[in-house]
Design a protein around this nucleic acid. Structure first.
Length: 424
RNA sequence: GUGGCUAUAGUUCAGUUGGUAGAACGUCGGACUGUGACUCCGAACGUCGUGGGUUCGAGCCCCACUAGCCACCCCA
């Protein structure tokens, strides 16, 4: 090998190809198909937005906004940010295009890259991909239940088994404020004995005190958000559980589920995979009734969730789920000689017209090398066209799995190979 | 942002108390008569992550940087 280029991919980014891309195709195809069954429509928004949208939508105080955004000024001096998540853009698009006119409730899904400046580790990249769903225009928890069941059914459809759906309600704003007050009262007694992170959490992110990994003993007797819910929130949460039961969605109630972004209220949920380690949350979401008005339109209730595609693929691998080749080669066409080349071109063309995947030799190599390549890329059949074949008006083809070789008249070749492929 | 571990051929790794690099697989070619996967033979490919330092001498020791992995923080 000659000198390798000095260019390397940017930290926390990934080239996706080969066997890896098969997993992506598998997930994306299943997911797209799946959304159709629930009558969702796809939306594609820009991967960058005005910075202000995210400040407003995600919350000034969040880690995402404070330290994780890719923000820069464009040549016109406008502050632009690579989207760190999909919901803010979806809400912006919903408002900007008056999608409510299409008949509420509106159900949208998206799939694309997100950017967060974080320290990479397994299941966490700086450019990562989310598949997300949003429902605008209904406050009924039927929508929440539909979303959770979508996530569950999609995961089981792709073969995942070892995950847990955790649900919670974080209540309305006032309920949550009361709860945080109570939490502060409770944790205030122990603060001096707790870890440094917890001291910071106490001030900025009080509910996160519950899932500290060091000072676990205090969480047991801490007040629960569920005791602070008002009548309406309580009823909603009860209904959510009821609907999930009817839909056969397994879940556990976990009062420790707190969504990190400011816009959430009431329903919060996470799906955690058992085999993934620290970054095990493969999907997360909840209700965000306040966000649409926050961004400047009439108050509109909304719910959504996002799936981390990289993490789902890690889960699939951890569970040993196999996926097939993205573009398997049905027939590899090899030839030798000028006349044979002409026939190879014609035959390849005909095969492709019939929907057969063909790799025709396109380099100047001898039979042996061509056959080797055919084997290397795992083709099912190799069609051989040499001088003898041209003379006798036949085509020789070889079944690569067992080495069986057959000669057929040219006219019959297409039919026969089509039949053979069907049987596989 | 904090902490720990790591960095040698395309890949996985070996390299003994510091004396200027090796294996396997892969790639390419040959034995093979127009025919791969098996077997045998041969070849190409590395300024040992980058930059400094210690030393007569560094892949091996020290420092910095970069990148990767793992955990924390946080999140998908």
């Amino acid at each position: 090998m000659t000198d390798l280029s000095a260019y390397k991919k940017i930290k926390g980014t990934q080239d996706i190809f080969g066997k890896e891309i098969d997993y992506w195709k598998y997930f994306e195809e299943k997911a797209n198909d799946f959304m159709g069954r629930y009558a969702f429509n796809e939306i594609r928004t820009p991967i960058m937005e005005q910075t202000e949208l995210f400040h407003r939508g995600i919350g000034e105080g969040t880690d995402v906004v404070q330290k994780e955004m890719y923000t820069f000024d464009d040549k016109g001096g406008r502050s632009v940010t690579l989207r760190p998540e999909g919901t803010a853009s979806a809400v912006r698009a919903y408002i900007e295009n008056s999608l409510m006119n299409m008949g509420s409730p509106i159900k949208l899904y998206y799939n694309g890259p997100m950017f967060r400046y974080e320290k990479p580790q397994s299941g966490r990249l700086r450019q990562f991909h989310q598949f997300g769903c949003e429902i605008f225009g209904t406050a009924d928890v039927l929508a929440d239940a539909e979303l959770i069941s979508i996530a569950h059914n999609l995961f089981s459809e792709i073969g995942l088994r070892k995950y847990t759906i955790k649900i919670n309600s974080i209540g309305k704003k006032e309920e949550r404020e009361n709860y945080i007050k109570a939490l502060k009262d409770y944790y205030g007694n122990y603060l001096s004995e707790m870890c440094d992170d917890c001291k910071v959490r106490y001030e900025n992110n009080t509910m996160r005190l519950l899932d500290c990994k060091i000072d676990t003993q205090y969480a047991k007797n801490a007040p629960s958000i569920l005791d602070f819910l008002g009548e309406e929130s309580k009823k909603d949460f009860e209904n959510l559980k009821k609907y999930l039961d009817i839909l056969g969605v397994p879940y556990v109630v976990d009062p420790g589920i707190i969504r990190g972004l400011d816009y959430y209220n009431n329903t919060a949920f996470e799906i955690e995979h058992e085999l993934l380690g620290a970054q095990g949350v493969i999907a997360g979401g909840g209700r965000y009734d306040g966000l649409v008005s926050e961004i400047g339109a009439n108050p509109t209730p909304a719910v959504g969730f996002a799936i981390g595609i990289e993490r789902v693929i890690l889960s699939m691998k951890a569970e040993g789920i196999e996926v097939s080749d993205e573009s398997p080669v049905d027939v590899y066409v090899i030839f030798s000689g000028e006349e044979a080349k002409k026939e190879a071109l014609e035959i390849s063309n005909e095969l492709r017209k019939r929907g057969i995947n063909v790799f025709m030799n396109i380099s100047s190599r001898n039979f042996s090398a061509q056959m080797k390549h055919s084997n290397k890329i795992n083709s099912k059949f190799t069609a051989i066209i040499g001088e003898d074949e041209v003379k006798e008006k036949i085509i020789t083809f070889k079944e690569m799995s067992n080495g069986e070789q057959t000669k057929v008249e040219k006219n019959w070749f297409l039919e026969i190979i089509e039949e053979k492929l069907k049987k596989q």
